[in-house]
């Protein structure tokens, strides 16, 4: 066997297993999901019928689904608005500060804590009877700020988004920090000699230098916002009524509570398409505004 053939055999044999695993656990389930999205399978019976595009038409006709998607949009928007703040915190943590490692750990800690524990802690904080948030507002004379945090349909989503921000901002900050540290210091020194101030340095060196990380965070934001599940599921179960339901929560209910796996598969496919489309649009917009590396 020639040397190049041997090389190929080695490479192929090393790649065969991961590719096989990928086919089995990623491509096959996705193909199966696509197949189920065209059926009326109820999740229990052993047979199902193909219903063509009926599930897709039904999904578009369900107002609750779009109300849930609107809630996802709120998560996306508010998280996106916080990105500049996260960059500023990262810049701040990148500076030479006393006890810097401690602050970095603190910022990242919420992301490490188990989601269920986070949900329980915040359920307690928002509690209308003896809940710490309301007690605190009362003690500083701000009774008028007291809200029905989890039971007012107009407030509940913002209460849950606050939990999401608390949990995920730390991860974004750490990612930005890693991006910041990858920027060579001599760029800053050269710009200083040329007379650039901190704002100009931020705009012309820091942001372009971190563009790859910003793109990743923006993608994580789209994906995360469209897939929000654990926080509303654990704290409100999408309630009161469907007020804090999200696209994924609605999909899970459709499958498990209302025995409509076909329709739920359709929703999962739609979610996948939405993530791809929104990420693509966002990337193009980001690059068009000069944020891209080019």
């Amino acid at each position: 066997m020639s040397y190049s053939m041997q090389k190929k055999v080695i490479i192929v044999s090393f790649l065969a297993l991961p590719i096989a695993l990928l086919l089995l656990f990623l491509l096959y389930p996705t193909a199966k999901l696509l197949q189920l999205s065209f059926t009326d399978w109820n999740g229990i019976s052993r047979t199902f019928e193909y219903v063509g595009l009926d599930n897709y038409a039904d999904a578009f006709r369900m107002p609750e689904l779009w109300k849930s998607l609107y809630n996802n949009w709120l998560y996306f928007l508010i998280h996106a608005l916080f990105i500049p703040l996260e960059i500023m915190v990262a810049v701040f943590l990148n500076a030479k500060l006393r006890a810097n490692p401690f602050f970095r750990s603190i910022v990242f800690l919420p992301y490490v804590i188990n989601g269920v524990a986070v949900a329980y802690v915040f359920s307690y904080l928002y509690n209308p009877i003896n809940g710490p948030i309301n007690l605190f507002l009362q003690s500083i004379g701000l009774e008028s700020w007291i809200q029905r945090w989890l039971s007012d349909p107009g407030v509940v989503n913002y209460s849950l988004i606050a939990v999401s921000l608390w949990r995920f901002c730390g991860l974004h900050v750490i990612l930005f920090l890693a991006g910041l540290q990858a920027i060579p210091q001599d760029l800053y020194e050269a710009s200083k000699i040329d007379g650039a101030g901190p704002m100009r340095q931020l705009w012309y060196i820091t942001i372009p230098g971190m563009s790859l990380v910003i793109e990743i965070v923006l993608f994580l934001n789209v994906r995360g916002a469209l897939q929000v599940f654990d926080i509303p599921f654990l704290i409100t179960q999408g309630g009161p009524g469907n007020a804090s339901s999200t696209f994924t929560l609605f999909t899970v209910d459709t499958a498990f509570k209302f025995n409509n796996y076909g329709l739920a598969s359709t929703m999962a496919i739609l979610l996948m398409i939405m993530i791809i489309v929104f990420s693509y649009i966002q990337k193009k917009l980001f690059q068009a505004t000069g944020g891209g590396r080019s």
Binding site: M5, K8, V9, V12, S13, L15, A16, L17, I19, A20, L23, L24
Partner: peptide, 14 residues
């Protein structure tokens, strides 16, 4: 030959 080999190996594992 390389491509066919790759395909065969992957298929055999699956």
């Amino acid at each position: 030959a390389g491509s066919i080999l790759a395909l065969l190996l992957t298929l055999s594992v699956v």
